[in-house]
Deep mutational scan, measured.
Amino acid sequence: TEEYTYTDKEKADRAAKEWANRGYTVTVTQDGPTYRVRVG
């Protein structure tokens, strides 16, 4: 499991979509002003 942190919702959504397109399980959680994209 890897985790990426973004401050921009659009970038987080785009990253999540790209990982999902590659067949990974993706979870996006909002943590205050940041968005965490957990992959795998």
Rank of each mutant, 00 (worst) to 15 (best):
E10R: 10
A15E: 06
R36P: 00
N21C: 14
R22T: 04
E2A: 14
T29Y: 14
A15L: 05
K9D: 03
N21D: 14
G23H: 03
V39C: 05
T34R: 09
T27R: 07
A16V: 06
Y6D: 01
A15Q: 05
E10P: 05
E18Y: 15
R38H: 12
T1R: 09
E10S: 10
D8E: 08
T34V: 15
A16H: 03
T5R: 08
T27D: 06
V26W: 02
R22M: 13
A16N: 02
E18V: 08
K11S: 15
G23Q: 02
T1L: 12
T5L: 13
T7I: 10
Y6P: 00
Y4W: 09
Y4A: 04
E18K: 08
Y4K: 04
T25I: 12
Y6H: 03
V26T: 05
D8Q: 07
V37M: 05
D13W: 15
V28K: 03
E2I: 15
R36L: 12
W19Y: 06
V28N: 02
V39F: 05
D13E: 14
E18S: 08
K17W: 12
G23F: 03
D31S: 07
R22F: 06
T34P: 12
V28I: 12
K11M: 14
P33A: 12
K11N: 10
G23V: 01
Y4H: 05
W19Q: 01
V28R: 03
T1S: 11
T5M: 10
P33M: 11
D31Q: 08
P33V: 09
G40Q: 15
V26I: 05
Y4S: 04
T29K: 06
A12V: 03
G32N: 02
E2L: 15
D31V: 13
A15M: 08
T7V: 09
K9Y: 10
V28P: 00
Y4R: 04
Q30D: 05
R22I: 05
D13C: 15
N21S: 14
Y6N: 01
K11P: 05
T7Q: 10
E2V: 15
T25N: 10
R38A: 08
A20Q: 13
T25G: 05
E3A: 05
G32I: 02
D31T: 07
R36S: 06
K17D: 08
Y35M: 03
Y4V: 04
V26Q: 00
K11W: 08
N21Q: 13
G40I: 14
T27Y: 09
Y4E: 05
T25H: 12
A16M: 06
D31E: 12
V28G: 01
G32T: 02
R36T: 14
T27F: 08
A12H: 00
D13I: 14
V37H: 01
T29R: 07
V28T: 05
R14I: 11
A15D: 07
P33I: 09
D13R: 08
A16P: 00
T5E: 10
Y24D: 01
K17Q: 13
D31W: 07
K9Q: 07
W19I: 03
T27S: 09
K17M: 13
Y6R: 01
K11A: 15
E3Y: 11
E3G: 06
D8W: 04
G23L: 03
K11L: 14
T34D: 05
V26F: 02
Y24V: 03
K17G: 07
T5H: 09
K17S: 09
G32L: 03
T27G: 04
R36N: 05
Y24I: 03
G23E: 02
V26E: 00
W19D: 00
E2W: 15
Q30G: 05
V37Q: 00
Q30W: 07
T5C: 13
E10F: 10
R36D: 01
V39S: 02
P33G: 13
G23P: 00
R36M: 08
R22H: 07
T1I: 14
D8F: 05
E3Q: 06
Y24P: 00
V26D: 00
R38I: 15
A15S: 06
D31L: 08
R22Q: 11
Y4I: 05
T27C: 13
V37K: 00
R22W: 07
P33K: 11
K9A: 08
D8I: 07
R22Y: 06
K17A: 13
Y6K: 00
A12E: 00
G40W: 15
Y35I: 07
A12R: 02
V28F: 05
Y24H: 05
Y6C: 02
D13M: 15
R14Y: 10
D8K: 05
T7D: 13
K17N: 10
R38T: 14
R22V: 04
V28Q: 05
D13L: 15
R38Y: 11
V37F: 04
T5G: 04
E2F: 15
R36K: 13
E10T: 09
G40P: 04
T25K: 11
A20H: 08
E18Q: 09
K17E: 13
Y35E: 00
E18T: 07
E18M: 13
T5K: 06
A15R: 04
G40L: 14
G40A: 14
K11Q: 14
A12W: 02
T27Q: 08
T7S: 10
A15V: 10
P33T: 12
V37W: 01
P33D: 15
G23R: 02
K11T: 14
R14P: 01
V39M: 03
D8G: 04
G32D: 02
E3R: 05
T1Y: 15
R22A: 11
A15H: 06
D8A: 06
R38G: 05
A12N: 00
